[in-house]
């Protein structure tokens, strides 16, 4: 079962597929100044897969991720998460979807400055009105290497630590899919490597489906698969990529 063999108009395979997109288009503005950010993108992310999305600046990576996560609505096409069509959902249903099925890691961490590390991590549970299981929280804090820092406010944490809090926050609800937009973009390589390790571990140990946008070939190499976007289209789809293969594909995509 590969993504390329996927027929766009078949019903999505909900048993194995976490997220699927069908013929997504998204255009900003209109007339002469219209920007075609996506020109018909269809992808399918199987459960438990770590997918990286790469491409030159302005190729539509963030746009694609926003559509997949239900933060934006496509002009045409559909997105399914856990078998549900999210493209025409009401705000209330989308909110419910985000609570249950989606985790986010942002480039700029976006922790709440008034909350401690631990409170930030358990925030999604609090939002959903669920009690955190202290065991699970402790384990997560340990795994993120944050046990010592649990009561620190974001301002008292380094960038790497903040991003680890953000990863923990995204994992706390075991979402159907975790989206990360350039999670290492604001970090030095050591801190970036830590965060990638954590994401990789979550995929390996918990089968956490993950979609990550990145510019970094090294980061992409830790994924199971790399999708290349150029000018709003998928131009390549590498399975089990090595860093060299990725660099080759990048050169290829840049020429396209």
């Amino acid at each position: 079962m590969t993504a390329l063999a996927y027929a766009p108009f078949d019903l999505p395979d909900t048993d194995h597929v976490a997220v699927s997109a069908t013929a997504l288009t998204r255009t900003y503005g209109d007339g002469g100044s219209a920007v075609h950010a996506l020109r018909g993108v269809s992808i399918e992310v199987p459960k438990g897969q770590f997918t990286a999305v790469m491409g030159p600046s302005g190729s539509g990576k963030s746009t694609l991720m926003h559509l997949l996560a239900g933060l934006d609505t496509p002009d045409a096409g559909a997105v399914h998460i856990a078998g549900e069509d999210i493209t025409r959902m009401s705000d209330r249903d989308l909110t419910r979807l985000r609570r249950k099925h989606i985790g986010f890691v942002f480039q700029s961490f976006n922790l709440l400055p008034t909350l401690s590390a631990e409170e930030n991590i358990t925030l999604p549970l609090a939002i959903a009105g669920r009690k955190p299981e202290q065991d699970a929280v402790d384990r997560l804090l340990d795994r993120m290497g944050l046990a010592e820092r649990r009561d620190h406010k974001p301002a008292q944490l380094s960038g790497g630590q903040q991003q680890r809090v953000a990863v923990a926050r995204a994992l706390i609800c075991s979402p159907t899919v975790l989206f990360a937009d350039e999670p290492t973009g604001n970090l030095d390589s050591a801190a970036g490597a830590d965060v990638l390790d954590l994401l990789r571990t979550a995929v390996d140990e918990d089968g956490q489906t993950t979609v990550m946008v990145t510019h970094d070939a090294r980061a992409a190499a830790s994924a199971d698969r790399v999708l290349f976007l150029a000018d709003g289209r998928v131009v390549a789809d590498l399975q089990g990529p090595t860093e060299d293969a990725i660099l080759d594909a990048m050169r290829e995509a840049a020429r396209a």
Partner: peptide, 16 residues
């Protein structure tokens, strides 16, 4: 604004 956006992305409803 950023915090509000983050909260909404984490599943904060409009009512919340």
């Amino acid at each position: 604004m950023r915090e509000l956006g983050t909260l909404r992305a984490l599943g904060f409803s409009r009512r919340q």
